[in-house]
Design a binder for these strands. Structure first.
Lengths: 230, 230
DNA sequence: ACCTGAACACCGTTCAAGT
DNA sequence: ACCTGAACACCGTTCAAGT
């Protein structure tokens, strides 16, 4: 109902001419979020950036949630599409790596990711590619959707957990609660953890998204060469 | 430095006697969060529930983030530990299912999960169990940690994405943005998606955590019976 | 040692009015 | 049709003072 028609070939609409547009707002929001972090993206700060009052924004965007969705869409739209290998298995890995890297490059995206699926127009290309490859690898359409979702959960979880941890570390260089817990480990109760306690921080800091992704794909798809002597 | 000694065998400490304690605060916070949702957990509302002023809380808890961590710890501590099967593979599945179900039962936990690893004292039991089982299944300690992390990312992602979606649906029964995108699918551009568009909502609503978990475990662990004719 | 009141520096959003 | 000012109903946290 709140349609915003692009200012294309309308012969002089009546009323006051607009001074800002959805596009201008989204670009300004992106600037704030990239330069200053999501925490600074408030309607007031955004209005300032655009050069209007907070209330002018509500004329172009329903509310702040809608704005965040527009922002997510913007990221999806400006992401580079990779050239896809022929092998379905490799195709899935390639698509998700691109998706992951593109999203992980915007640490602010974490707050937005939790607010909805990544389901903008622009993201459909990636989803289509994964479903198609999964079917190509031998799954049924329904299984393919399930596989896609599993991979998506893993990807979202990885980005959220790791980039939140990184943000925390940057904001507060003091040892985390986890470090404290690990330094008081009882070797009788938790022998395995005690044995690797010293390596834990280093192991956790390492980016193992790709390894996990490949394990996941292997677990989800049927074996590459099915002997099946039936 | 801000040590809070339990009121055990101290012979009449000087100064004003405390009227609230960390325990009382955490219990009150839990009550609010369970009954009214995380959004309502504010320092002011919490003070009201406890029967003090907001500022009294800051004497027992560093800040709101610390409070959320205490809350997470509380959940981990009150979670029931499952009896573990002998088979390492089944053991991992069992532990993560318990972890998942326990966390997913508290929809409010989403906001807290993103704020740190699940690394309270009480959670160590689960982590130790997974690492031990993974080593038992043939992984090196380092590989076991990697496997644990991959499974944790998947679990967190699943909980966050699905419970956020559920919360949205409850708050606003109108069709989501995703529904809208799916109803305008171009079958030429996205043939696979167009073919399953009608089933998408149903497939996504379904709980497939277990299936994904098992696929993940299969992909992460070495095959159960390694022929290895060397 | 523990608690309080008042204040600071913010939020998102509504509503009635202006151009 | 688009924008504004003033206001509502909130936040987390600091600080100086009280018991």
């Amino acid at each position: 109902m709140n349609e915003h028609v692009p200012s294309s070939s309308r012969p002089r609409p009546p009323g006051r001419p607009p001074r800002v547009s959805r596009d201008v707002i989204v670009r300004a929001a992106r600037r704030i979020v990239d330069d200053e972090g999501v925490a600074r993206l408030t309607m007031r700060r955004l209005a300032e950036e655009v050069g209007t009052t907070p209330m002018a924004l509500y004329h172009h965007v329903r509310d702040k949630d809608a704005l965040l969705l527009l922002l997510l869409e913007d990221v999806a739209a400006t992401m580079q599409r990779p050239t896809l290998p022929a092998d379905p298995r490799q195709r899935i890995v390639t698509i998700f790596r691109t998706l992951h890297d593109g999203l992980a490059a915007c640490p602010w995206i974490v707050d937005v990711l939790t607010s909805d699926d990544l389901m903008s127009e622009a993201a459909l290309w990636y989803v289509e590619g994964v479903i198609d490859a999964a079917i190509g690898a031998g799954l049924s359409p329904r299984q393919a959707v399930r596989a896609y979702r599993t991979l998506w959960y893993y990807t979202v979880g990885e980005i959220i957990v790791r980039s939140t941890a990184a943000r925390r570390r940057a904001a507060n260089p003091a040892p985390t609660y986890r470090d404290e817990v690990f330094s008081h480990l009882n070797a009788d109760e938790h022998p395995r953890l005690a044995a690797i306690a010293d390596d834990w921080a280093e192991l956790t800091a390492r980016d193992t998204y790709r390894d996990g992704l490949e394990a996941l794909v292997n677990g989800l798809l049927p074996p590459p060469i099915a002997p099946d002597p039936a």
